[in-house]
Amino acid sequence: MKHEEKNFEKSDQFNLTMIPGAFARKMRTCVIWQFIRFVAINIKMIVVVGKSH
C-alpha cells in the first residue's frame, strides 16, 4: 500500500478527503522548488499588503 493511502482507512473523516501523494510531498521540501515558491508567495503577499494600506 502506498504511503498516502494508509490514512484513508483510519477513519471515515479521512476517507472522504484528499491526501497528497509522494510527488506533492516531495515538492514541499524540495529546496529549489520551494525557493521559487518563496519568491512567488512573497510577491503575492507584498501585493496584498500594498492593497491593504
Binding site: 498516502e4 484513508f8 473523516q13 478527503t17 484528499m18 497528497p20
Partner: peptide, 12 residues
Amino acid sequence: AESLFAERNVEW
C-alpha cells in the same frame, strides 16, 4: 484543512 488533518493522522 481536511486534507492536512488526514495526512497527519489528526482527527477532528
